[in-house]
Simulated scan of single mutants.
Amino acid sequence: MRQSPIYKIPFQNIQEKNMSFEVVFNHIVEFMNVNPAGNYQLMVGTDSQVHKQHTVFITGIVIRQVGNGVWGCIRKVMVPRRMTHLHERISYELSLTEEIVSLFTEERKNQLIDIVLPAVYQGATFTMEGHIDIGIGKRNKTSEFVNEMIARMESMGVEPKIKPNAFVASSYANRYTKQE
């Protein structure tokens, strides 16, 4: 299988730049191995911002141990034009999220599940969520796309989350879209 150039776009966070997905995955494994009896949420979400000459897309990956910290990173994709049509932008955001979710193959997901499995009877959990930067409010311009986007996430076997519960897209990734 030949990988598209977009797979080569590196991840980064405050501590580390130019991380491959393998490095990111290893950070997630290390984070979970600190306390295998934890409740873990692996969350992926994308947000975008239209600038003067281009549109910036930031995809965030966050592993959260409920009540006990997080580790996260982002990946930046720049489209060299203003993407002003909302449906196109939301759909592309979700495509970028789906691309990252697809990197968590069954083998990789099983590796993460195997970390918590010995402590499952003590309450350990692992879930994977796709955070979509859309909402259902009557005044929300994205509400007409909710069913389509949720169905896309569900088809990948990932639990979809929308606003206000889609904080990886609407808060974490959003913070980095403002930067040129």
Rank of each mutant, 00 (worst) to 15 (best):
R2V: 09
S4H: 11
P5N: 06
Y7R: 12
K8N: 05
K8D: 10
K8I: 00
Q15W: 12
N18V: 06
N18K: 13
M19K: 07
E22P: 02
V24I: 10
V24N: 00
M32H: 04
M32T: 02
N33P: 04
Y40L: 03
Y40T: 01
L42Q: 04
L42Y: 01
Q49S: 12
V50P: 00
H51V: 09
K52I: 08
K52Q: 14
K52V: 11
H54E: 09
H54D: 08
T55Y: 01
T55R: 02
I63E: 00
R64L: 15
Q65A: 07
V66F: 09
V70I: 13
G72E: 08
V77D: 10
P80A: 04
R81Y: 05
H87F: 15
E88K: 09
R89L: 06
I90M: 14
S91A: 14
L94C: 11
S95T: 14
T97C: 12
T97L: 05
E98C: 04
T105D: 13
T105V: 15
E106S: 15
E106M: 13
K109M: 15
I113C: 04
V116W: 00
V120Q: 12
V120S: 08
M128L: 13
H131D: 13
I132S: 00
I136C: 09
G137P: 01
R139Y: 09
K141S: 07
T142E: 01
T142D: 00
F145T: 04
F145W: 10
V146L: 06
M149Y: 05
M149H: 07
I150Q: 12
K163G: 03
P164G: 08
N165F: 15
A169R: 01
A169Q: 01
S171Y: 05
R175I: 12
Y176L: 06
Q179R: 10
